[in-house]
């Protein structure tokens, strides 16, 4: 039984994506260029532009119209467990602190919607993901004794364990320290390349995205601003328009580009009220 198709054509194509809330349309007929298999795609943008909504709409966790194709598979026509068989979605919230041990939590994520998996197959999948993320030391600790960051890593393991073709991670680094941020990104990169999966990852750390992502999707308050290779998307001009900040992109001593933020852009003061009002309207 193969969990994933090694098909170089299995790109993610999103077209005419429309979703929003009762009072406010978030995306209207959004079209994106195809995202090739094996790529790690950073989803960037300021607060309340709809990064979470975007990921939830693709995951099928909220109502949306439009076409989403994963290779030959029409993802947008699948629902519930059938859709989630191909998608690993990690919500922004951390897994709850329960009396389950981490191993049980990850095994249940694997078996919950796939009763047909044997005990051996489950154990092997769980084993692989714990090895991949170097979480062995946490395996038999109760979730309510783990720190927020550790629980976030267990949450990631829950999303990865079923080896889905499409990974949607909503700010998976929010509770992680520097070392675990790197461990997470490297772990995810490894999975994406080995399984020729596609990962969309919402991030706040622009430098992390610049350094590790293959592609960037940048949202501004006005909507989709740019997509493409990190060096092309992350420019001073785009950052000013998306985040309302003045920033420089410089080379570090290893030759990698680094974003240095200086101050809030002059024209951005009016936007802050706009952003907080929108954030309020979303909940």
């Amino acid at each position: 039984m193969s969990h994933h198709v090694f098909d170089s054509q299995a790109s993610l194509r999103i077209s005419q994506l429309t979703t929003g809330y009762q009072r406010r349309m978030i995306f209207d007929q959004l079209d994106l260029p195809p995202l090739p298999a094996g790529s790690l795609v950073g989803v960037l943008g300021p607060n309340a532009v709809g990064k979470s909504t975007f990921l939830k709409a693709i995951a099928g966790m909220r109502p949306a119209k439009g076409d989403i194709h994963l290779g030959e598979l029409a993802l947008s026509s699948l629902h519930g467990a059938n859709r989630m068989r191909h998608v690993g979605y990690l919500p922004q919230t951390l897994p709850q602190p329960t009396s389950l041990v981490a191993y049980e939590a990850v095994a249940s994520a694997c078996r919950a919607a796939r009763a047909e998996l044997s005990r051996e197959a489950t154990d092997s999948l769980v084993e692989q993901v714990f090895a991949r993320l170097s979480l062995h030391s946490l395996a038999f600790r109760r979730m309510d004794t783990l720190s927020g960051g550790q629980r976030q890593m267990v949450g990631l393991a829950q999303a990865l364990v079923r080896q889905p073709q499409l990974l949607l991670l909503d700010e998976p680094t929010s509770a992680l320290d520097l070392r675990w941020q790197l461990a997470l990104i490297e772990g995810v990169r490894g999975v994406v390349q080995e399984q020729q999966a596609i990962c969309l990852i919402a991030l706040h750390d622009i430098n992390l995205a610049l350094r590790f992502c293959d592609q960037i999707i940048l949202f501004a308050p006005s909507g989709l601003l740019a997509t493409g290779a990190p060096r092309e998307v992350i420019t001073a001009e785009h950052l000013r328009e998306a985040y309302g900040i003045e920033a420089r992109i410089e080379s570090c001593s290893l030759g990698h580009p680094v974003v240095l933020t200086d101050r809030v852009a002059d024209s951005a003061h009016a936007d802050i009220g706009h952003i907080t009002r929108d954030a309020g309207a979303r909940r």
Binding site: M61, G80, N82, T98, L100, E104, A112, A113, G155
Partner: peptide, 18 residues
């Protein structure tokens, strides 16, 4: 299994296909 998975939280359980 589904009930155990639900202990992670409602959003998480949904994302596993529960």
């Amino acid at each position: 299994w589904a009930l155990t998975a639900l202990r992670a939280g409602e959003d998480h359980a949904r994302s596993f296909g529960v």
